[in-house]
Design a protein around this nucleic acid. Structure first.
Lengths: 343, 343
DNA sequence: TTGTAAGCGTTATCAT
DNA sequence: ATGATAACGCTTACAA
């Protein structure tokens, strides 16, 4: 590179001077105006000059005049849940492709509104928010912003969701097909819709199979590894505990797995465990976790596309078809051990 | 949605009008000028008006005039490594505290330079880059930017590092103390300095103990779970394989653990495994992984502080003291089984 | 097709 | 202590 004197920023004016055109023309060339607006020869000269100078359009200035920043915010309560990190990755990729930057905004309950204010001050064009994020936010604080929700349906904002109910159904059928009858559920305390739907689909199938949900086989815990571990411990204390347990997400399932290992219950022989999300760690434990793949990357990517549609005023459905999910049978599920009654 | 018609952005001018002062005064109040610059009464009126109107300073406009955007970029090759996600979290927290936003820039080899150009266009104030990120970047492309490296020392840019050599030493001593003599190493192919130092510290102690590194107990693999699994498989084929293996990071260690489970080798009885990083998943497997805590969050936080020092021109040391590391003994290490020779 | 000029919402430099 | 006013780098009518 070359030190441009005292290393001032190269502006469109510099390019204009070098190309012998007006500054406005340079702008025309770079702002993706219809090719008709500037002659091919001029355009070429401008581009050459720009390249020679190492010109990069100043997005900040553009943002100021257009009132748009080509930047979107991604509000997440904690960068800890692998599911959301994957969603973020997927979103980030499509946004970058379209020239948008992603501002990471970790927001807990206390700071959610302040975070949005901060993003507003940056003339953010839109916001992607996950279930946890939205729950700790005053709806009015989002007025006038393009908002898309990730995996949390709402009548107020558009969003993308996975087919959570189907996820629950798939698990229930899988367990029933294996022959399980005493089936437990480890669900989170938070009332994220996705979790509720997973439970609903799950319970629906069981009921249809004539398997009544037994309250002592259901346990509410935080949606974390420790939550799952503690919940599973509780379930295991029961002498006639469940032979299979559906955990509302993989983190919980991994905790449950730990509890089993500590209690010397073999998985899947003594008890089957199923998770939901198919996070990477699901394949990390032994035996590998049977779970439902939600494809968070794809979910994030779709959320990003939806957000771009909203921002750029393109037609879109506020609530697109839920993302397909898929049961991934791995090593933590098996037929229940025949005990007593039958061989 | 609401058409942006009636809800124009509230500007400092609006506030000025309502407070009966000039726009400049409003600016003075909000740009944290010394209190002496504006009378307490006026200041109060301005703040009241601002609150009533819901005024939020436009950071974009400020960025344009000051040539600073109060935004920094975080360049990471992939949002997959939990270590870097934690570092990002730590960094993000201190930056937000100081009014800076963090733009997430996932950059692989092919797109690294384009990504930096994009960030430049956004008048980014600084950049935090990790080992993988920097390796795929042309140094000149960073000219004129405030850059801080995370866990990858460089003579060219300041950065924060963990005490990687000590990490290796701690592991070696731990294994030697337990009585291991045939000790293996699963190291990554990438030449991140941190990995090299871990190995150096490790090998140094072993040599001092008169334990010669045996090449058949060393295996180079990608720094991933699968890499670790494959590498461990190789190590296990040896009839007189190692009784303990140090894996250059936790991901590799977890893969190694898997390989052991699949090969029916008990951990830690048949073979001890040690990782490095102490990622969350380390506590997720059973037995829990013995590892070295690097405190990535703290590392990220320090990187952020260093970057702010650089940006704001405060005095700072380019290469602060490495971050202390700590051996975390969990369940994957034990004394080697006495075989043959002695009881 | 290209140039001229008026902002976008701030900060910063002057006066007052 | 406060008010005009000129940038900052760009987009966008409107003129030529």
């Amino acid at each position: 590179m070359m030190p441009p004197g005292p290393s001032r920023r190269v502006t469109s004016r510099d390019v204009a001077a070098r190309a012998g055109v007006s500054q406005a023309t340079v702008s025309l060339v770079f702002s993706g105006a219809p090719p008709s607006r500037v002659g091919p020869a001029t355009r070429e000269r401008v581009l050459t000059a720009a390249r020679a100078l190492g010109y990069e359009p100043n997005v900040v200035a553009r943002a100021l005049v257009q009132g748009r920043s080509y930047t979107v915010g991604l509000v997440m309560p904690a960068l800890r849940d692998p599911f959301f990190i994957d969603a973020a990755t997927g979103a980030q990729r499509v946004l970058r492709e379209q020239g948008y930057a992603v501002i990471l905004a970790e927001a807990d309950e206390s700071s959610a509104d302040r975070t949005v204010a901060m993003l507003r001050g940056r003339q953010i064009d839109g916001l992607m928010i996950d279930a946890m994020g939205i729950s700790s936010m005053a709806p009015e604080s989002l007025d006038g912003l393009a908002v898309v929700l990730i995996d949390e349906p709402s009548s107020r904002w558009p969003g993308v969701v996975s087919d959570a109910e189907e996820a629950g159904r798939l698990v229930a059928r899988h367990l029933v097909d294996l022959g399980h009858r005493r089936i437990g559920f480890l669900g989170p305390l938070t009332d994220a819709q996705a979790f509720r739907l997973r439970e609903r689909g799950f319970a629906g199938v069981l009921r249809a199979e004539g398997i009544l949900p037994q309250s002592e086989h259901v346990c509410r815990v935080p949606a974390t590894v420790n939550g799952g571990r503690d919940g599973m411990r509780t379930l295991l204390t029961d002498r006639a505990g469940p032979t299979a347990v559906f955990c509302a997400n993989d983190l919980v399932a991994l905790g449950a797995l730990k509890a089993c290992a500590q209690a010397k219950r073999r998985v899947p022989n003594d008890v089957s465990i199923v998770g939901c999300d198919d996070i990477e760690s699901a394949q990390l434990v032994t035996p590998e976790l049977t779970t439902v793949a939600i494809r968070p990357r794809e979910l994030g990517a779709r959320a990003a596309k939806l957000l771009l549609d909203v921002i750029e005023g393109r037609p879109h459905r506020a609530r697109p078809k839920p993302l397909d999910v898929e049961l991934i049978v791995r090593g933590t599920t098996a037929r229940p051990l025949a005990r007593g009654k039958r061989p």
